[in-house]
Each structure stands twice: as C-alpha cells, then as structure tokens.
Design a protein around this nucleic acid. Structure first.
Length: 651
RNA sequence: GCCGUUUUAGCUCAGUGGUAGAGCACAUCCUUGGUAAGGAUGAGGUCUCGGGUUCAAAUCCCGAAAACGGCUCCA
C-alpha cells in the first residue's frame, strides 16, 4: 500500500501502481468524470500513469489553468493528427498550449500553403477524429529509438529537437490513433473529451523562433469540452473587436494615421487632444502633493549624451540613426528617452541633500524605431509621449519614494476603475550578468528596496527573473480590462547607474559628496498606450469628466435653437462641454444618434423648457430623467465630475 | 525586417475581363416635430501606386506602399 496526500493534507492509502484516475474515482464519480490531469509530487502527470510510491497529488479539472493547459495541449496533438491525414508528408515542429488555446508549427510537403479557406476542413477532420475517442498512450523511449522512429517518419524537425535538446532517459512519446508525437506530456485521457474546435488563425513562425531559420506555418486553434463554451468564446472575441481602440478612435475622431505623414506616427485630432490634455491635467493634480517640478526638454539630443547614458551602446543600432547638421557634421539623435536630459537638469547646479528627493517630471515626447511589422494602433508606435518623471533620492530614501509613486499609480487605477491589476517585479538574471550594468551589491539593494516597498503597500507581486531593464530592476503594473485582457501600464524603475554615468552628486550633511539614486516612473506609461487601453476598457464610453462631449443639447425644432444656444452658453460658464444638435431631424432621431455616440447627457429643449428656464434631461443608457433648471443641472454635473476625480485623490 | 491576408465613395462593405454599386454619412428641398431611424432629390470614385498581359483590366500577372494577423523585438 502507498500513502497519497491530498492538497488539504488528508492522506489515503491505495494499492501501489494506482492511477490518478482511480484516486479521483475513489472520491466521487463526478470528479472522475471531470478530472483532466493530475500533478504528482509537483510533476504534471497523466491520469492513467501509475503512482508507485507515497506521493502528494493534485487533480485538475477544466476550471483550472493546469486542466485547460493539458486539454489544449492534447488538442494540439489532435490538430496534428488531422493535418497528418489531410496533408500527407507534413512535418511537425512545436505544438504547445498557449494562453487561449494552442498552436502547431508545421511544414506541409511540396510547398503547399494552408490558408483560412482550409479551416473548416481541418475543424471537421479534428471533430471526426475526436469522435473516435482515441486514448492517449504514453511511451518512454531511448534517445536512439526516438531518433530512428522519427527519422523513419520523415520528421526532420523532431529529430533535430531530440538530437540537440533532449537527454537519454527523459524522452517520451504519446500516441492517439495513428498519430505519434514526441512529447513530455501530460495529456488528457482521450480525445473524445474535446467537443468543440475552432481554428482561429494561421501565421508564419520561424523554426525555433530564429529569423535565420525556415519559416513554418503556425496554425492556431482553441477547443472546448462543451459546444456552449465555444459559443461564449466567439461572442467574447466579437466583443473584443467592437472594443478595438483603432476602430473606436476613428469613430470618435480622437486620432488618425496618415501614410503621407508616415507609419507609426499617431496624429492627435482635436477631440483626442482635448481628452489627452485632460488626462495630463489629472496627473498634474495627482502629483501636486508630492512636489514634482515640470520641465520641457528638446526633442533631440547630442549623440554624445546617449553615449554617456549607455543607451547608444545598448540600443544605438536599433534606434533611428543620428541626424547631422549640414555644415558642422554634428550628430544628434531623436530623443528616445527623457532621462539624460533630466540628468543634465540635475547637474546644472550644485545640489544639497536638503533638496532630495528632487522630482523632475515631463510629458516628454520620445522617438523609437520599431520594425514596421510591429506597429499596432496606438499601442506600438514610433513616437509617443511618456508621462515621465525622474526622481533623484538618497539611497535611504529609495523605499519611501517608491511607495509615494505606488500611491500615485494606485490612485490612477482607482479613478479609471482598473480594479484588477497585477504588479510584477522584474529582476536581473544572475546567470546573464553581461546584459546588465552595475555591481552585484547595487542590484541586490535596489531589488530589495522594491520588494520591501511593495510589502509595505500590501501588494501582491509576482517576480520575473531576467525582465529587468539593463540599468536596474523595475516594478510594472498590469491591468485587466473589462473583458479580462491584460495590459501593461504604469512602471517604476530604480536606477543606480545613470547618476554615476552622469557623475551626478550632492553634498551631504557632513559636507562630503554622494551620488544620488534615480527613480524613473510613468503612471500611464505613455499617453498613447494609456488612451488605447482606456478605450478598450470602456468600449469608448469615457467617464463624464474625461469625455470630449459631455452634453448634447437637442432642440425639439429649429424654433428653439436660440434657447438651446443660451443653454449652451450657460453651461459653458461652468466649464461644461456641450454642443447643440441642430440638424433638421425629429427629436427621436437626434436621441438615437447621440445615444449611439455615447454622449453622457442629452438635454431636450422645447416650448415647456423655454417657458420655465429648464432642460429635460436624458442620461446615456438610462433614458428620461425629468426636467431641471439649467443652473441646477449645471451644478449637479460639476459635482459629478468633481466626485469622479476627487474620491480617489483623498489618500 | 520575415511569412500570410487585405486595400473599391467620408465610413462599413458588395462587385471580379466589357459604361463602377449598396447602406450609413454629406448637400438641397419638403416637413417644425416631445424622448432610440420622417420624406424627396442630389453630389461624391485615377477602384492604393507603378509596370505588364489583353481589342478591352477595379478584376489576370509582376513590383512597391500601407493596414491587418502572427514571428522576432521593445530603453
């Protein structure tokens, strides 16, 4: 008998060689039916794989990441099996599960192309195979056997993978039906559990992610254990498309791109600019209690500045190349970062410890070369404006100042109702020290300062090794939007290196010289990216305080245009942004159109309202709210705006 | 940058070798209306650009550009 320990620490005895499936059965038939995969002693484990000695066990169903992962991993094999039947001689690369489904990288024989038109055929074949409900059978094989087996099958990529990456004694294969794949596992017990499949996308992908190697065809798909779940997923995808900031930005006339101006260069239209300036004002307001000093620095800088900062060595060849003055041949770079300029501001006069922390902020527009295929709406562009700041502190002030910045970022998230966010601490990879500059001691100190600040703030954090910037560790904030997608927004980075490179110093209380530490921070990240995320999060229904058009005034007929204008003027005195819809249309039409434009308030004005100096109020999404005096409506609205911004600035 | 797909009116899209279409938006006129689409008329296009094939190209072929989906990258 062996002892099996469950996650709740309870222990049960079983015969040696018991399978996780049998363990699940012993708990309940329902669990046995739903369980997909197990974890035995922290190793992922097939349900049919025997357990020979005492072990910890965890069982996973569809509702867990582990369960989904195994389900999609098996689905990748099912896709491969289908492709093998449909495209004889096809070769396989890698076929893993990913966040939403799975993919398989393949190379069809004789240069055959697989396109969207082939998806229905592939889906049908996968379902046909799934209905045969084949078991997935695990086999452990020697390296030599694996090589000869996959060589015989003509799978050159698999052979390369076995040959170069795998060690004898660790190799296993999985077989379902007529398809055998090299695979570590684990898998769900059989393909019959897969009830719905959607091939979502096809794209090129380099073998082993190496741009110098062959380009394979990557086929993406997603599967579900119930048809209904697929339908829900497809609805969610549709919703995401409707929320696409590129579509909404165009509809709302916030920003545009022009081929003639150049790709990746966003143009902020009047309404977008209006909104962006309001966002900047919000930040200024949030920064006010912390004594930031706003500056404006040039859009270019001498190349030598970036040689000093280290950016030239690290990014020079991947940046827009330096521009030269025609007569003198001086070299300038389009500004890719604001920090060197801010270091020069610090260095412009002798500094005392009494001045620290010194907080320099700038809405600084930077230019970065991005490869053309990487550009995407407002989220990936070649010029953008950072809500940047550089804070110069003493080493013993790092933690406290870090906390101050966290407060600002959290206030931003509260105001925009990003309730789900994750904080990621990006650390240096100790195995790859050449990638980074600075001493071990300094890295340790700064990484710990971040950890402690997060702990003080009671934040849940995740640590990622090797994700740090080359000059220091950072804390990144990822928010989840209204339909659950993750976006990276705010960032805080500690930098002990740049101040040294710029030979920055301050005079201490005992009249010696010390080098300050620099904290880079951007609560929004960039104005462009933030606006994109905000549009997708709100589906374009911007909060009242931010939206370019707060109020639409709708005259019943043109006889009331003059009254409408007097209402507009009155609201304008309170800083309310209102416009008159004086088109020659009936009131129903005006209501419908402005409702679809997501204008937060509509004011209907006709004879009754004019007689009483009132407006009839209609709230977006809510309908008729009755009439009020103009001044009362204006005061209510001003109050609503104040509440939206203020309830989050209190602490 | 690489692979694939796409590019037709301001927007969303149909058309597919033989005189360029729809809906919405826009303009003019009628209508002057009370809480989610009033009616009529009209204007609007080098069918992304450059070559080629053809009696004839928006349509077929080649090249370029841009957008989109991935890959790779992201200070």
């Amino acid at each position: 008998m062996i002892k099996i320990t469950f996650p709740d620490q309870s222990v049960k005895e079983f015969e040696g060689g018991v399978t996780p499936y049998a363990v699940a059965e012993s708990i309940s038939p329902r669990l046995a039916q739903d369980v997909l995969v197990a974890k035995v002693n922290d190793e992922m484990w097939d349900l049919s794989r025997p357990i020979e000695s005492d072990a910890k066990i965890e069982l996973f169903k569809w509702d867990s990441d582990e369960g989904k992962h195994a389900f999609w991993h098996t689905s990748a094999h099912l896709l491969a099996e289908a492709l093998q039947e449909l495209y004889p001689g096809i070769q396989f690369g890698f076929g893993p599960a990913v966040e939403n489904g799975f993919f398989y990288d393949v190379m069809p024989a004789n240069g055959v192309a697989i396109s969207e038109n082939d998806f229905p055929k592939i889906e049908a074949k996968m379902m046909e195979l799934a209905r045969q409900d084949e078991k997935l059978i695990r086999r452990e094989v020697s390296k030599a056997d694996a090589l000869s087996e996959f060589k015989a099958a003509g799978q050159t990529y698999k052979c390369e993978h076995i040959d170069q990456d795998l060690e004898d004694g660790t190799i296993s294969t999985y077989t379902q039906g007529k398809f055998t794949d090299l695979c570590r596992g684990p898998h769900i017990p059989s393909t019959g559990i897969i009830k719905a499949v959607k091939i979502t996308n096809v794209a090129g992908a380099f073998w082993r992610g190496d741009a110098k190697r062959e380009q394979m065809t990557r086929i993406y798909g997603i599967t579900f254990p119930k048809k209904k779940l697929l339908d829900e997923y497809l609805v969610m995808i549709e919703e995401a498309k409707k929320r696409d900031h590129r579509k909404i930005g165009k509809e709302m006339e916030l920003f545009m791109f022009s081929d003639r101006v150049g790709k990746g260069l966003p143009i902020w239209l009047p309404k977008g600019t209006d909104m962006r300036l309001r966002l900047q004002d919000l930040l200024r307001r949030l920064m006010k209690p912390y004594n930031y000093q706003e500056v404006i620095t040039p859009g270019i800088g001498s190349k030598q500045l970036y040689v000093t900062s280290g950016h030239w060595a690290h990014y020079g060849k991947d940046a827009f190349q330096p521009i030269q003055t025609p007569e003198e041949g001086e070299e300038y770079m389009l500004k890719p970062m604001n920090c060197p300029h801010h270091c020069e501001i610090y260095a412009s006069k002798p500094r005392s410890y009494r001045e620290l922390p010194l907080r320099i902020c700038e809405f600084g527009t930077v230019f970065r070369y991005e490869k053309s295929g990487e550009l995407h709406g407002l989220t990936r562009v070649r010029t953008f404006t950072q809500d940047d700041a550089h804070i110069f502190v003493r080493r013993d002030q790092v933690k406290k100042e870090f906390e101050n910045v966290i407060d600002i970022i959290q206030a931003v998230f509260r105001i925009f109702k990003f309730e789900n966010y994750e904080a990621q601490i990006s650390l240096r990879d100790p195995a790859d020290k050449e990638k980074y500059i600075g001493s071990d001691e300094i890295w340790e100190e700064s990484q710990n300062a971040i950890r402690e600040a997060c702990r003080e703030k009671g934040m849940q954090t995740r640590e990622e090794i090797g994700e740090a910037a080359f000059y220091g560790p950072k804390l990144d904030f990822m928010v989840k939007d209204a339909i659950g997608r993750r976006w990276q927004l705010g960032t805080i980075q500690v930098d002990y290196n740049l101040p040294q490179r710029f030979k920055l110093e301050y005079t201490t209380d005992d009249n010696s010289k010390e080098t300050p530490v620099m904290i880079h921070r951007a609560p929004f990240g960039s104005m462009e990216r933030f606006v994109a995320v905000l549009l997708e999060h709100t589906a374009g229904k911007l909060p009242l305080w931010l939206t370019p058009d707060q109020v639409a005034i709708l005259p019943i007929s043109e006889k009331f245009n003059d009254y409408a204008e007097s209402v507009r003027k009155e609201l304008d005195k309170s800083g309310i942004r209102a416009f008159i819809d004086d088109r020659n249309e009936k009131i129903g039409r005006k209501i419908r159109d402005n409702e679809l434009k997501k204008v937060p308030y509509m004011l209907i004005v006709g004879d009754k309202e004019q007689q009483n100096g009132e407006v009839s109020i209609r709230k977006q999404g809510a309908g008729d709210e009755g009439s009020k005096k103009i001044a009362i409506f204006a005061a209510d609205l001003v109050q609503e705006v104040e509440n939206q911004i203020n309830n989050s600035t209190a602490n």
